[in-house]
Design a protein around this nucleic acid. Structure first.
Lengths: 163, 163
DNA sequence: TTCCCATCGTTGCATTCGCAACCAGGATGT
DNA sequence: ACATCCTGGTTGCGAATGCAACGATGGGAA
């Protein structure tokens, strides 16, 4: 396997080619675990005829936000979606009557997404399904301290690195 | 916030509606961290004009496999891809000359994906970029024991739950 | 054998995503 | 004022994805 085979001389390019088995395993484990978890949640939602996860995330952010509205901008930052995706997701949600898109008065460029009662209802209906899936596939498999550890570690990963 | 507000009576439906803050935070943290990491790796690959991550995963599995070939079936299981995606990804890779798809003699239904020299070359070319990104955004932010812990925890998550 | 069911892989169609180009509105500098 | 750059959001188009339906083979059971 490539990542085990010793590089010739010191190392080839700038990439130091050698990971420990644990590093490799941890990385792949993290990626696959999350793929698996997301998949499980999406399956659960689909099985109940509910919309996919990004809808939930979007609505949740609005539902939590004071006033039930946020700039598209801000939503994208929070749910890690590129701006074109935010635009289009918000348009789809609007077409379903879950959200209203209203231009921002202070900033002529801005658009607010404003959750509607129907939007709040849908989110509330999705939550038990979402919750059950996460509990079954994630929370139930770990102890209290494990969860706390994951919380801490994941937070560390997302911290900014550079200046 | 929904997940904090106490449910009326014991609990509504089968979904016990209350998570602790840590649970919520750990779940969201995990999902977002992984989104962020995958995004970073994909960005790095794209910046170098290299193909996206699923290509790498696919080729890697083949490259590791003895004989350089696997059933589509098996690849899907390993990289957590639905079968239609495996079919189409393998077709794309074949079109690029990175893989050959050959029918399985023993099982008339099966198809082997067989990595070509070009496939191995490409994978090897992608690796340094992949590695550098993971190192920068993931490994470098954690200590040795953290990595070991993540390895253990993620493994636990993917373990089968019940028969 | 024949019938039935599960598995492996493919495909059509609709939805979604990725990318690059674009427009409009703000901010900054002169 | 003006030129310039940055940011917020949109859109066209090509690629990838999800879903459901399909054909084909294999493995039993009767």
């Amino acid at each position: 396997m490539y990542y085990i085979r010793p590089m010739k001389k010191k190392t080839a390019v700038s990439s130091a080619g050698g990971w420990t088995d644990t590093e490799t395993s941890a990385w792949i484990g993290l990626v696959r675990a999350q793929q698996y978890l997301i998949g499980a949640v999406e399956d659960a939602l689909r099985a109940k005829g509910l919309p996919p996860l990004p809808w939930y995330d979007f609505l949740w952010e609005l539902d939590r936000a004071p006033g039930g509205n946020l700039r598209l901008n801000e939503i994208g930052r929070r749910v890690l979606l590129d701006k074109y995706n935010v635009t289009r997701l918000s348009q789809r949600l609007e077409k379903e009557g879950l959200v209203r898109r209203v231009p921002c008065a202070q900033d002529g460029r801005g658009i607010f997404a404003h959750i509607t009662p129907g939007g709040r209802r849908l989110r509330k209906k999705m939550w038990p399904v979402y919750e059950r899936a996460v509990k079954e596939h994630f929370l139930s498999k770990l102890g209290k301290e494990d969860i706390a550890r994951i919380d801490k570690l994941m937070r560390r990963i997302r911290e900014e690195s550079g200046p």
